[in-house]
Design a protein around this nucleic acid. Structure first.
Lengths: 130, 130
DNA sequence: TTAAATGCAAAGAATTTGCATAACA
DNA sequence: TGTTATGCAAATTCTTTGCATTTAA
């Protein structure tokens, strides 16, 4: 258990739940200035391997990391980037279909489900009608 | 309508349906040797903007491109990479939930849904029992 | 003939790796 | 004291961009 690792864990616990490796490096560097980004990546990989941390892709751009205890998927608006947390139970129906049709036990956390939120759909309609 | 664009379209029509930009460049170069990868990317972007092509992320690694006429999502086994095409209707239930709970109209094509296929789950069980 | 598309090289973003040094057990 | 982790720089992978030149309407 090294300093870098301890600090990273505290940042994962303290900070919000949608943090990139770079965010986490910045948080860590606020405490221990010379923690290097590559060390953050290495420790995140290790923690992920141990099942403590998971990473998720919300769109193009960097992955976000969070504690594995937070079990939920993500809905993301393609237009404004707004993120909605989606409780696991919402994926139960899809999981059953995937198992029946493809024999696949889904883990629907790794990629977000994209779409368009009401606000952005409304704005698009406004533009069309104007 | 340039040569590069015509050739790219023919490759999209001819080739399989899970091709990376690099695959498509190779296909195109078999016909017109000096089509450049950046031209492929630029045309794919253009075609995507026009709604003719879409790209999908099946996991880490390069995006795959296909004609927008192929309307389906993807299930992918995390372990072996096997890809299952998932008809749109499988996402109807999830779409309703997303709309009710988050006001989000989902377009479930952009990211695959990951999981573990029967074969890989079986293999994992075998290893555990051995 | 002129605006748009191309080839090439180079830049960019996110992540990974090699290696000498430093820190933990 | 001997692994194991770290900092740093450099490499990798996928994708985008700048620019001089070519191509097509």
């Amino acid at each position: 258990m090294t300093t870098a690792r301890r600090v990273l864990l505290s940042c994962l616990l303290d900070g919000g739940s949608h943090r990139t490796a770079e965010d986490l490096a910045a948080d860590a560097q606020a405490i221990v200035p010379d923690v290097h980004l590559s060390t953050i990546y290495r420790n995140l990989e290790e923690l992920e391997h141990l099942g403590v941390v998971e990473h998720v892709h919300l769109g193009h751009g960097p992955a976000i990391y969070h504690l594995a205890t937070e079990h939920h998927g993500h809905f993301v608006c393609e237009d404004c980037g707004k993120v909605f947390e989606a409780p696991d139970e919402l994926f139960a129906g899809l999981g059953k279909l995937a198992l029946d049709r493809a024999g696949l036990t889904i883990k629907p956390h790794h990629f977000a489900v994209l779409g368009t939120c009401d606000a952005c759909a409304g704005r698009a309609a406004d533009l069309r009608d104007a």
